[in-house]
Design a protein around this nucleic acid. Structure first.
Length: 479
DNA sequence: CGTGATGCGCTTAAGCGCATCACGGTGCGTTAAT
C-alpha cells in the first residue's frame, strides 16, 4: 500500500505499469536486480520511486550526456531540487558547487568515464549511497569490450559495502545478461524479464542489386506514411538520403555523431514534436528517443548484431499501432558491415608498438598523436594491456573479432530464415506462440495492409532551414 | 567490400580517362594551441 501512496504523491500515477512494482520491491529488499522492461517511460520510475523511500543518494550511471540532461530535467519538473549530473557540460564553478554539496543530492548522474577517475571514486566512497543504477545496461556488453572499456570497470569503483545495484535495459540477450551480471559483480541477481516480442512490428527483408537500393528506398518513403527513420552505415550516406528526401518535399533531416551536440538535440526535438517526418541517421540516433508514432524503420545496411537490430527496429510502433521494419539487403552487404565492425580493433603491429613504447619508457598515448592508432583503439588496447599479460592480448583481440563475426552471421541467418519473428524470438529464448497476420516477409506480408499511404504535405512557407531556425531561436549561437 | 577523392598521363594545355588509395560507427573527458 505504501508504494502506491508514494506513486500517487510524488508521481501522480494511480497504478504501476507491468513489472515496475516487482522490480521496486526487489530493490527495497536489498537485492541486486536486473530489469528488462519494454521500451518507454516506465523504466526511470524503477529507481526514482525507491529514491524517495530510502535515505541517501541514488547514483545513476548513464551512457549519454543528453540522456542525463533529460532525466535531470524530468526530475526537476517533478519538483526535485536535489539532483545533478556531474559531467563535462558543467563549468568549473558549477562543478565546484556540486562537489561542495555532493552529499545533499538525492539523485546523482555520472558517466562510466567519470566514475573511472580516482578522485571521483574517493568522493563516491564518502557518500551514503542508497542505490546504484546502471541505465541502458546492455552498453556493458555492447560497448565495454571494444569501445568504452570504462563500462567494464564500474564494479571497481564501488565501495566495499555497497548498496544494491539495479541494471536497466530493454534489449539483452542471454549472453549480454551474463556479461552484465559478471562485470557488475552482482550477488544473487534477481532478473525480471518481459517479452521482447512486439506483435505490431512487421519485419521485411528486401533483396536488391546494388544499383537499385537507394531508389527503392526512396520509393517506399514516398509511397507510405511516416514518421520514420532510415539507418545508414556512413554519415555521408545519411546526408545523401536526407538531401534526396528534401528534394521530394519530405520534411527530414540527417543525424550523426559528426554534428554539433546542440544541432543533434535540435533535430531530435524537431522529430519528436512532429515537425520532421524522417530522420536519416547512423546508429548514433535512437537511444533515449521516445517517440510514440514511428511507423517505419528502414535499414540501408545490415547492423552488426541481433541486439543492435532489435534496438533499432524497436523504436517503431511504441503507440501499439502497426509499423513496418524493412531492411534492404544486397548480397555483399555483410562484408562491409564486418569491415566497419573491425575498424578499431587493434592490429598485431599496433600491439607490438604499444609494448615497445611502454617498455622503452615512452608514453603510449603518443601513438595516437603520431597517427598510429585511433583514440578508440588506444583506449581499448590500454585497457586490455592493463588487464591481461601482453602475450594474451592478441588472442583476446582475435577472440573479439571472432565473436563479432559470429554475431553478424547470427543476424544474417535470422534475416534469411523461414520466419524472421520466430528467429528473433528464439534468439531471446522465447517462442512464437501466436500467428500474426503479415508477420514478416518470409511468412508473407502486404505493405498496404500495414501502412497507410504517404500524404503529401506542402512545406509551408514559414518553414525555415533548421540551421537558420537555430540561429533565430538562439541568437547567441550564431557563427 | 564500395565509394569517392586524388593524382597522373595524355594532349589541338584544359579537361578527360583511368588507376590508386584511404576511408567507413557508436562517446566520454580533457587539453593544447589559437
Amino acid at each position: 500500500m505504501e508504494l502506491e501512496h508514494v506513486l500517487k504523491e510524488k508521481f501522480g500515477y494511480d497504478s504501476f505499469r507491468e513489472g515496475q512494482k516487482e522490480v521496486i520491491e526487489s530493490i527495497l529488499n536489498g537485492q541486486d536486480t536486473f530489469a528488462l522492461l519494454p521500451t518507454g517511460k516506465g523504466k526511470s520510475l524503477c529507481y526514482q520511486l525507491p529514491g524517495y523511500m530510502m535515505n541517501g543518494t541514488v547514483l545513476i550511471i548513464s551512457p549519454l550526456l543528453s540522456l542525463m540532461q533529460d532525466q535531470v530535467e524530468q526530475l526537476k519538473k517533478l519538483g526535485e531540487k536535489r539532483v545533478a549530473a556531474l559531467n563535462s557540460f558543467l563549468s568549473k564553478e558549477e562543478k565546484r558547487f556540486v562537489w561542495q554539496h555532493i552529499s545533499e543530492f538525492r539523485f546523482l548522474f555520472l558517466s562510466p568515464e567519470m566514475l573511472s577517475s580516482t578522485i571521483v571514486r574517493e568522493k563516491i566512497h564518502e557518500l551514503n549511497l542508497s542505490l546504484i543504477v546502471v541505465d541502458e545496461a546492455h552498453c556493458i556488453s555492447q560497448w565495454g569490450f571494444d569501445f568504452r572499456p570504462e563500462y567494464l570497470q564500474i564494479a571497481d569503483a564501488m565501495p566495499e559495502n555497497r548498496p544494491p545495484i539495479l541494471a536497466l535495459s530493454a534489449t539483452a540477450t542471454k549472453a549480454m545478461t551474463e556479461d552484465i551480471s559478471t562485470y557488475l559483480k552482482m550477488n544473487d541477481m534477481q532478473t525480471f524479464r518481459y517479452s521482447v516480442d512486439r506483435a505490431n512490428l512487421h519485419y521485411e527483408v528486401v533483396e536488391v542489386e546494388s544499383f537499385e537500393k537507394q531508389q527503392k528506398i526512396m520509393e517506399q518513403i514516398e509511397q507510405f506514411e511516416g514518421p520514420g527513420i532510415v539507418y545508414t552505415q556512413s554519415r555521408k550516406k545519411a546526408e545523401k538520403y536526407a538531401e534526396q528526401l528534401a528534394s521530394k518535399n519530405i520534411r527530414c533531416a540527417f543525424y550523426h555523431a559528426g554534428m554539433e551536440q546542440e544541432d543533434r538535440r535540435f533535430i531530435q526535438h524537431q522529430f519528436l514534436s512532429g515537425q520532421l517526418d524522417w530522420i536519416c541517421a547512423t546508429n548514433a540516433f535512437g537511444m533515449g528517443v521516445h517517440k510514440e508514432n514511428i511507423r517505419q524503420i528502414i535499414h540501408d545496411y545490415i547492423p552488426q548484431n541481433v541486439a543492435s537490430y532489435m534496438q533499432e527496429v524497436g523504436r517503431a510502433g511504441r503507440d501499439g499501432q502497426a509499423a513496418l521494419c524493412t531492411i534492404y539487403v544486397e548480397a555483399t552487404d555483410w562484408t562491409r558491415t564486418l569491415e566497419v565492425a573491425m575498424l578499431d580493433l587493434p592490429q598485431q603491429w599496433q600491439i607490438d608498438e604499444f609494448l615497445r613504447y611502454t617498455q622503452s619508457g615512452m608514453r603510449p598515448d603518443l601513438l595516437v598523436t603520431e597517427g598510429k592508432m585511433s583514440e578508440t583503439t588506444y583506449r581499448v588496447l590500454a585497457y586490455w594491456m592493463n588487464h591481461l599479460l601482453p602475450e594474451d592480448v592478441l588472442m583476446k583481440v582475435q577472440q573479439l573479432a571472432m565473436t563479432k563475426k559470429q554475431q553478424l552471421s547470427e543476424l544474417v541467418h535470422i534475416l534469411s530464415g523461414s520466419c524472421i519473428r520466430e528467429g528473433l524470438l528464439r534468439y531471446f529464448d522465447e517462442e512464437k506462440n501466436v500467428d500474426i497476420a503479415n508477420c514478416c516477409s518470409s511468412c508473407g506480408l502486404n505493405r498496404h495492409e500495414i501502412l497507410k499511404k504517404h500524404i503529401k504535405r506542402n512545406r509551408s512557407k514559414e518553414s525555415v532551414e533548421w540551421r537558420e531556425r537555430i540561429q533565430r531561436l538562439l541568437p547567441m549561437h550564431s557563427n
